[in-house]
Design a protein around this nucleic acid. Structure first.
Lengths: 114, 114
DNA sequence: AATGAATATATGATAAATCGTATATTTCAC
DNA sequence: GTGAAATATACGATTTATCATATATTCATT
């Protein structure tokens, strides 16, 4: 069960909020894609993603050398809606990151859940 | 302009989150009502409300010896929806506070905005 | 104007979060 | 198996947030 306090603490950091919003738009992103999008160091991105995973907000899947992060399948609907609304209403907050975003080549196909 | 980061930092504290959600349900509440609802000290409540006011998330109006806090009239629609959704989907988080909540007698009527 | 109730703020102490750097782990290519 | 790329984690150091306590302010009552 995701408490609202834990959820909002997760959103209360620039790096984590941008990672989450980018992942919300892109379905899934790997660490190096988020590094270039946010222009932040690898340990910094990785540490924040680990926090989001520990809170069951993100899940990860390894694919070769890459680890792709996506919204956790059991993320409550209200939390998902909060992310969507934040995204739609704050385009300019995310725009610089989206411009910097470049997907890795050889991206492996996402596995369906069933 | 309320940035999403500032907004979520404001929600990332138990006292502030509960105050905000209670105010969302009750239209407006004064400091002493929030003190009894949350069972927290006066300076603690007051300090957190001051933060929320400084971020333009709450507005205050003095009425005699009381100061009533309500959602800021220019709070963006997306932020308002986030609060509403959080409220509806997390009843059990707020329930204990709502049970403790007792409104001050002699509550003066809220002034309409026009 | 003096008192008491409600609220706000200042101050120093404590706790929590974040960060950079260094290092470990995993996987792929050769 | 060696080396390089991608990712994770450990460790101190630094910054940021929170808190309790004390004090100031504001207003109503007398």
């Amino acid at each position: 069960m995701l408490s609202p306090l834990v959820f909002y603490k997760a959103l209360a950091d620039d790096t984590r909020l941008k990672c989450l919003l980018l992942i919300t738009t892109q379905q899934e992103l790997c660490v190096c894609e988020l590094m270039t999008a946010l222009e932040q160091s690898q340990p910094k991105i990785s540490r924040h993603l680990a926090q989001l995973r520990a809170a069951n907000i993100l899940q990860d899947r390894r694919s070769g050398q890459w680890v792709f992060y996506s919204l956790h399948p059991q993320l409550p609907a209200w939390a998902h809606q909060v992310l969507q609304q934040t995204l739609l209403a704050n385009q300019s907050y995310l725009a610089p990151c989206q411009q910097q975003l470049t997907l890795v080549s050889n991206r492996p196909a996402e596995q369906g859940c069933c």
